[in-house]
Amino acid sequence: MIRRLVVLAAIGVALAPLPLLLPPAQEAVAVRALMFAMMAVAWNLMSGFGGLFSFGHAAYFGLGAYTTALLTVELGLSPWLGLLAGMAVAALFGVVTGYLAVRYRLKGAYFALATFAFAEMLRLAALNSELVGGAVGLTLPVTGEQGWWTLRFDVGDPAYFWVALLLTLACVATVIVLLGSRAGLNLVAVREDETAAAAAGVAVVRHQILAIGVSAALTSVAGGFYAVYYLFVSPDLAFGPSVSIQAILPAVIGGVGTVWGPLIGAAVLAPLSDVAATVVRTPPEFLSFLQGRSGLDVIMYAVLLIVVVLAMPRGLYGGFARRSR
Protein backbone atom coordinates (compact mmCIF):
# COMPACT_ATOMS: atom_id res chain seq x y z
CA MET A 1 0.00 0.00 0.00
CA ILE A 2 2.81 2.44 0.93
CA ARG A 3 4.61 1.53 -2.29
CA ARG A 4 1.51 2.24 -4.34
CA LEU A 5 1.01 5.61 -2.64
CA VAL A 6 4.62 6.52 -3.41
CA VAL A 7 4.13 5.58 -7.06
CA LEU A 8 0.97 7.67 -7.10
CA ALA A 9 2.79 10.67 -5.63
CA ALA A 10 5.49 10.27 -8.27
CA ILE A 11 2.85 10.22 -11.01
CA GLY A 12 1.37 13.39 -9.55
CA VAL A 13 4.71 15.18 -9.48
CA ALA A 14 5.50 14.07 -13.03
CA LEU A 15 2.16 15.29 -14.40
CA ALA A 16 2.06 18.61 -12.52
CA PRO A 17 4.11 20.66 -15.05
CA LEU A 18 2.10 19.30 -18.00
CA PRO A 19 -0.18 22.35 -18.53
CA LEU A 20 2.88 24.61 -18.69
CA LEU A 21 4.32 22.50 -21.50
CA LEU A 22 1.18 21.77 -23.53
CA PRO A 23 -0.65 24.14 -25.85
CA PRO A 24 -4.12 25.10 -24.47
CA ALA A 25 -5.99 22.75 -26.81
CA GLN A 26 -3.93 19.84 -25.56
CA GLU A 27 -4.40 20.90 -21.97
CA ALA A 28 -8.13 20.50 -22.43
CA VAL A 29 -7.48 16.93 -23.59
CA ALA A 30 -5.38 16.31 -20.48
CA VAL A 31 -8.19 17.60 -18.27
CA ARG A 32 -10.61 15.26 -20.04
CA ALA A 33 -8.20 12.40 -19.41
CA LEU A 34 -8.24 13.18 -15.71
CA MET A 35 -12.04 13.18 -15.65
CA PHE A 36 -12.03 9.81 -17.44
CA ALA A 37 -9.51 8.60 -14.88
CA MET A 38 -11.61 9.63 -11.87
CA MET A 39 -14.71 7.92 -13.23
CA ALA A 40 -12.85 4.78 -14.26
CA VAL A 41 -11.00 4.47 -10.97
CA ALA A 42 -14.30 4.79 -9.11
CA TRP A 43 -16.08 2.33 -11.42
CA ASN A 44 -13.20 -0.10 -11.05
CA LEU A 45 -13.54 -0.12 -7.25
CA MET A 46 -17.14 -1.26 -7.38
CA SER A 47 -17.10 -3.35 -10.55
CA GLY A 48 -13.47 -4.46 -10.86
CA PHE A 49 -12.57 -5.13 -7.24
CA GLY A 50 -16.11 -5.53 -5.93
CA GLY A 51 -17.42 -7.60 -8.84
CA LEU A 52 -20.65 -5.60 -9.05
CA PHE A 53 -20.84 -4.68 -12.73
CA SER A 54 -22.32 -1.21 -13.03
CA PHE A 55 -23.76 0.14 -16.25
CA GLY A 56 -25.18 3.17 -14.51
CA HIS A 57 -22.32 5.25 -13.14
CA ALA A 58 -23.91 8.23 -14.91
CA ALA A 59 -26.28 8.33 -11.94
CA TYR A 60 -23.46 9.21 -9.51
CA PHE A 61 -21.67 11.43 -12.03
CA GLY A 62 -24.88 13.35 -12.74
CA LEU A 63 -25.78 13.75 -9.07
CA GLY A 64 -22.33 15.25 -8.48
CA ALA A 65 -22.65 17.55 -11.49
CA TYR A 66 -26.17 18.74 -10.68
CA THR A 67 -25.56 19.15 -6.94
CA THR A 68 -22.45 21.26 -7.57
CA ALA A 69 -24.16 23.30 -10.29
CA LEU A 70 -27.29 23.86 -8.25
CA LEU A 71 -25.48 24.97 -5.09
CA THR A 72 -23.24 27.28 -7.11
CA VAL A 73 -26.05 28.81 -9.20
CA GLU A 74 -28.83 29.02 -6.63
CA LEU A 75 -26.94 29.63 -3.39
CA GLY A 76 -23.66 31.05 -4.66
CA LEU A 77 -21.71 28.52 -2.62
CA SER A 78 -18.14 27.51 -3.37
CA PRO A 79 -17.89 24.53 -5.73
CA TRP A 80 -15.79 22.81 -3.07
CA LEU A 81 -18.90 22.65 -0.90
CA GLY A 82 -20.81 21.54 -3.97
CA LEU A 83 -18.34 18.69 -4.47
CA LEU A 84 -18.73 17.58 -0.85
CA ALA A 85 -22.52 17.81 -1.00
CA GLY A 86 -22.47 15.93 -4.31
CA MET A 87 -20.42 13.15 -2.75
CA ALA A 88 -22.92 12.82 0.08
CA VAL A 89 -25.92 12.81 -2.27
CA ALA A 90 -24.33 10.31 -4.68
CA ALA A 91 -23.15 8.03 -1.87
CA LEU A 92 -26.61 8.04 -0.32
CA PHE A 93 -28.24 7.27 -3.68
CA GLY A 94 -25.67 4.54 -4.32
CA VAL A 95 -26.15 2.96 -0.92
CA VAL A 96 -29.95 2.94 -1.14
CA THR A 97 -30.22 1.68 -4.73
CA GLY A 98 -27.27 -0.65 -4.21
CA TYR A 99 -28.86 -2.13 -1.12
CA LEU A 100 -32.08 -2.78 -3.01
CA ALA A 101 -30.22 -4.48 -5.86
CA VAL A 102 -27.99 -6.57 -3.61
CA ARG A 103 -30.76 -7.36 -1.13
CA TYR A 104 -32.92 -8.80 -3.87
CA ARG A 105 -29.95 -10.78 -5.15
CA LEU A 106 -29.59 -9.22 -8.57
CA LYS A 107 -26.43 -10.62 -10.12
CA GLY A 108 -24.38 -10.04 -13.25
CA ALA A 109 -26.39 -8.70 -16.15
CA TYR A 110 -29.48 -8.15 -13.98
CA PHE A 111 -27.51 -6.03 -11.54
CA ALA A 112 -26.03 -4.05 -14.45
CA LEU A 113 -29.50 -3.47 -15.90
CA ALA A 114 -30.76 -2.25 -12.53
CA THR A 115 -27.94 0.32 -12.29
CA PHE A 116 -28.71 1.40 -15.87
CA ALA A 117 -32.39 1.80 -14.99
CA PHE A 118 -31.59 3.95 -11.94
CA ALA A 119 -29.41 6.25 -14.08
CA GLU A 120 -32.13 6.56 -16.72
CA MET A 121 -34.64 7.29 -13.99
CA LEU A 122 -32.53 10.23 -12.84
CA ARG A 123 -32.05 11.44 -16.43
CA LEU A 124 -35.82 11.52 -16.97
CA ALA A 125 -36.35 13.16 -13.58
CA ALA A 126 -33.87 15.91 -14.46
CA LEU A 127 -35.44 16.29 -17.90
CA ASN A 128 -38.82 16.96 -16.33
CA SER A 129 -37.85 19.01 -13.31
CA GLU A 130 -38.09 22.80 -13.53
CA LEU A 131 -35.88 23.15 -10.45
CA VAL A 132 -32.87 21.92 -12.41
CA GLY A 133 -33.77 23.58 -15.69
CA GLY A 134 -35.46 20.65 -17.41
CA ALA A 135 -34.14 19.83 -20.86
CA VAL A 136 -32.23 23.13 -21.01
CA GLY A 137 -30.05 22.26 -18.04
CA LEU A 138 -28.13 24.60 -15.78
CA THR A 139 -25.55 27.19 -16.79
CA LEU A 140 -22.99 28.26 -14.23
CA PRO A 141 -21.93 31.92 -14.01
CA VAL A 142 -18.88 32.71 -16.15
CA THR A 143 -18.09 35.98 -14.47
CA GLY A 144 -17.40 36.68 -10.83
CA GLU A 145 -14.58 36.41 -8.41
CA GLN A 146 -11.77 34.18 -9.65
CA GLY A 147 -9.53 31.96 -7.58
CA TRP A 148 -9.13 28.61 -5.87
CA TRP A 149 -12.14 29.09 -3.60
CA THR A 150 -14.58 29.78 -6.44
CA LEU A 151 -12.69 27.46 -8.81
CA ARG A 152 -13.20 30.05 -11.51
CA PHE A 153 -10.26 30.78 -13.78
CA ASP A 154 -9.62 32.14 -17.25
CA VAL A 155 -10.25 29.69 -20.06
CA GLY A 156 -7.13 27.59 -20.52
CA ASP A 157 -5.68 28.49 -17.12
CA PRO A 158 -3.40 25.70 -15.90
CA ALA A 159 -5.19 25.82 -12.54
CA TYR A 160 -8.07 23.78 -14.02
CA PHE A 161 -5.64 20.98 -14.77
CA TRP A 162 -4.13 21.18 -11.30
CA VAL A 163 -7.55 21.01 -9.63
CA ALA A 164 -8.45 17.97 -11.73
CA LEU A 165 -5.08 16.38 -10.98
CA LEU A 166 -5.51 16.94 -7.26
CA LEU A 167 -8.99 15.44 -7.28
CA THR A 168 -7.82 12.46 -9.34
CA LEU A 169 -4.89 11.79 -7.01
CA ALA A 170 -7.26 11.96 -4.03
CA CYS A 171 -9.62 9.46 -5.68
CA VAL A 172 -6.83 7.02 -6.50
CA ALA A 173 -5.31 7.39 -3.02
CA THR A 174 -8.71 6.61 -1.47
CA VAL A 175 -8.95 3.42 -3.52
CA ILE A 176 -5.37 2.40 -2.67
CA VAL A 177 -5.90 2.89 1.07
CA LEU A 178 -9.22 1.06 0.99
CA LEU A 179 -7.71 -1.88 -0.90
CA GLY A 180 -4.86 -2.06 1.59
CA SER A 181 -7.25 -2.37 4.51
CA ARG A 182 -9.01 -5.42 5.84
CA ALA A 183 -12.23 -4.19 4.24
CA GLY A 184 -10.56 -4.03 0.83
CA LEU A 185 -9.28 -7.58 1.07
CA ASN A 186 -12.71 -8.75 2.21
CA LEU A 187 -14.29 -6.97 -0.75
CA VAL A 188 -12.15 -8.89 -3.23
CA ALA A 189 -12.92 -12.12 -1.35
CA VAL A 190 -16.63 -11.37 -1.74
CA ARG A 191 -16.12 -10.84 -5.48
CA GLU A 192 -14.32 -14.17 -5.76
CA ASP A 193 -16.90 -16.26 -3.87
CA GLU A 194 -19.75 -14.86 -1.78
CA THR A 195 -20.57 -18.14 -0.06
CA ALA A 196 -16.97 -18.89 0.86
CA ALA A 197 -16.51 -15.30 2.05
CA ALA A 198 -19.50 -15.61 4.38
CA ALA A 199 -18.12 -18.93 5.62
CA ALA A 200 -14.87 -17.07 6.37
CA GLY A 201 -16.76 -14.61 8.55
CA VAL A 202 -17.15 -11.77 6.03
CA ALA A 203 -20.33 -9.68 6.07
CA VAL A 204 -21.00 -9.90 2.33
CA VAL A 205 -23.72 -7.30 1.83
CA ARG A 206 -22.04 -4.72 4.07
CA HIS A 207 -18.86 -4.86 1.99
CA GLN A 208 -20.74 -4.61 -1.27
CA ILE A 209 -22.64 -1.57 -0.01
CA LEU A 210 -19.39 0.01 1.15
CA ALA A 211 -17.86 -0.42 -2.31
CA ILE A 212 -20.93 1.05 -4.00
CA GLY A 213 -21.07 4.02 -1.64
CA VAL A 214 -17.40 4.92 -2.00
CA SER A 215 -17.50 4.38 -5.76
CA ALA A 216 -20.55 6.63 -6.05
CA ALA A 217 -18.93 9.38 -3.98
CA LEU A 218 -15.72 9.31 -6.06
CA THR A 219 -17.66 9.33 -9.34
CA SER A 220 -19.64 12.35 -8.18
CA VAL A 221 -16.37 14.26 -7.79
CA ALA A 222 -15.75 13.84 -11.53
CA GLY A 223 -19.29 15.10 -12.17
CA GLY A 224 -18.86 18.10 -9.89
CA PHE A 225 -15.62 19.02 -11.60
CA TYR A 226 -17.32 18.64 -14.98
CA ALA A 227 -19.86 21.29 -13.97
CA VAL A 228 -17.14 23.63 -12.74
CA TYR A 229 -15.00 23.15 -15.84
CA TYR A 230 -17.60 23.26 -18.62
CA LEU A 231 -19.94 25.60 -16.71
CA PHE A 232 -22.91 23.70 -18.04
CA VAL A 233 -24.86 20.56 -17.17
CA SER A 234 -27.82 18.99 -18.94
CA PRO A 235 -29.74 15.73 -18.42
CA ASP A 236 -27.97 13.98 -21.32
CA LEU A 237 -24.47 15.21 -20.49
CA ALA A 238 -24.83 14.32 -16.82
CA PHE A 239 -27.05 11.23 -16.74
CA GLY A 240 -26.83 9.88 -20.31
CA PRO A 241 -25.76 6.29 -21.02
CA SER A 242 -22.61 7.55 -22.76
CA VAL A 243 -21.42 8.85 -19.39
CA SER A 244 -21.70 5.37 -17.92
CA ILE A 245 -19.74 4.00 -20.87
CA GLN A 246 -17.02 6.60 -20.28
CA ALA A 247 -16.61 5.24 -16.76
CA ILE A 248 -16.33 1.66 -17.98
CA LEU A 249 -14.15 1.96 -21.10
CA PRO A 250 -10.89 3.28 -19.60
CA ALA A 251 -11.03 0.62 -16.90
CA VAL A 252 -11.69 -2.20 -19.35
CA ILE A 253 -9.03 -1.03 -21.79
CA GLY A 254 -6.48 -0.35 -19.06
CA GLY A 255 -7.22 -3.41 -16.94
CA VAL A 256 -10.23 -4.25 -14.76
CA GLY A 257 -9.41 -4.96 -11.13
CA THR A 258 -5.97 -3.37 -11.25
CA VAL A 259 -5.03 -0.14 -9.51
CA TRP A 260 -3.21 1.47 -12.46
CA GLY A 261 -5.22 0.09 -15.37
CA PRO A 262 -7.95 2.77 -15.33
CA LEU A 263 -5.34 5.55 -15.33
CA ILE A 264 -3.59 4.05 -18.35
CA GLY A 265 -6.91 3.52 -20.09
CA ALA A 266 -7.85 7.15 -19.49
CA ALA A 267 -4.50 8.37 -20.80
CA VAL A 268 -5.09 6.38 -24.01
CA LEU A 269 -8.77 7.14 -24.53
CA ALA A 270 -8.87 10.91 -24.00
CA PRO A 271 -6.36 11.76 -26.77
CA LEU A 272 -8.06 9.22 -29.00
CA SER A 273 -11.45 10.83 -28.57
CA ASP A 274 -9.84 14.17 -29.35
CA VAL A 275 -8.29 12.80 -32.55
CA ALA A 276 -11.67 11.44 -33.54
CA ALA A 277 -13.31 14.81 -32.95
CA THR A 278 -10.61 16.61 -34.94
CA VAL A 279 -10.85 14.21 -37.89
CA VAL A 280 -14.58 14.74 -38.10
CA ARG A 281 -14.23 18.51 -37.91
CA THR A 282 -11.38 18.88 -40.41
CA PRO A 283 -10.75 15.55 -42.14
CA PRO A 284 -7.67 15.03 -44.30
CA GLU A 285 -8.23 14.90 -48.08
CA PHE A 286 -8.71 11.13 -48.41
CA LEU A 287 -11.22 11.04 -45.54
CA SER A 288 -13.25 14.05 -46.67
CA PHE A 289 -16.46 11.98 -46.59
CA LEU A 290 -16.22 12.05 -42.80
CA GLN A 291 -16.75 15.81 -42.70
CA GLY A 292 -19.34 16.63 -40.06
CA ARG A 293 -20.37 13.04 -39.42
CA SER A 294 -20.92 12.05 -35.85
CA GLY A 295 -20.16 8.75 -34.19
CA LEU A 296 -16.58 8.30 -35.35
CA ASP A 297 -15.36 8.41 -31.77
CA VAL A 298 -17.77 5.65 -30.86
CA ILE A 299 -16.49 3.53 -33.77
CA MET A 300 -12.93 4.07 -32.63
CA TYR A 301 -13.80 3.14 -29.05
CA ALA A 302 -15.49 0.01 -30.30
CA VAL A 303 -12.55 -1.03 -32.48
CA LEU A 304 -10.09 -0.38 -29.67
CA LEU A 305 -12.26 -2.29 -27.23
CA ILE A 306 -12.47 -5.30 -29.55
CA VAL A 307 -8.72 -5.28 -30.17
CA VAL A 308 -7.92 -5.05 -26.46
CA VAL A 309 -10.43 -7.67 -25.42
CA LEU A 310 -9.11 -10.08 -28.05
CA ALA A 311 -5.38 -9.43 -27.72
CA MET A 312 -5.15 -8.47 -24.04
CA PRO A 313 -8.17 -9.70 -22.12
CA ARG A 314 -6.64 -8.38 -18.90
CA GLY A 315 -6.29 -4.88 -20.32
CA LEU A 316 -3.20 -2.91 -21.31
CA TYR A 317 -1.80 -2.81 -17.78
CA GLY A 318 -2.89 -6.32 -16.88
CA GLY A 319 -1.40 -7.68 -20.11
CA PHE A 320 2.00 -6.05 -19.69
CA ALA A 321 2.19 -6.76 -15.96
CA ARG A 322 1.57 -10.43 -16.67
CA ARG A 323 4.13 -10.63 -19.46
CA SER A 324 6.87 -9.05 -17.37
CA ARG A 325 6.29 -11.33 -14.41
Binding site: L185, N186, V188, A189, E192, D193, A196, A200, G201
Partner: peptide
Protein backbone atom coordinates in the same frame (compact mmCIF):
# COMPACT_ATOMS: atom_id res chain seq x y z
CA UNK B 1 -12.94 -26.57 -2.33
CA UNK B 2 -13.90 -22.93 -2.65
CA UNK B 3 -10.75 -20.80 -2.50
CA UNK B 4 -10.72 -17.15 -3.58
CA UNK B 5 -8.85 -18.03 -6.80
CA UNK B 6 -7.35 -14.63 -7.65
CA UNK B 7 -6.07 -14.07 -4.11
CA UNK B 8 -2.81 -15.50 -2.84
CA UNK B 9 -2.83 -18.32 -0.29
CA UNK B 10 -1.81 -15.79 2.36
CA UNK B 11 -4.66 -13.41 1.46
CA UNK B 12 -7.14 -16.29 1.44
CA UNK B 13 -6.30 -17.15 5.02
CA UNK B 14 -5.91 -13.49 6.06
CA UNK B 15 -9.57 -12.88 5.20
CA UNK B 16 -10.60 -15.50 7.74
CA UNK B 17 -7.99 -14.52 10.34
CA UNK B 18 -9.24 -10.93 10.12
CA UNK B 19 -12.60 -11.92 11.56
Amino acid sequence: TRPFPALSVLDNVTVAAGA
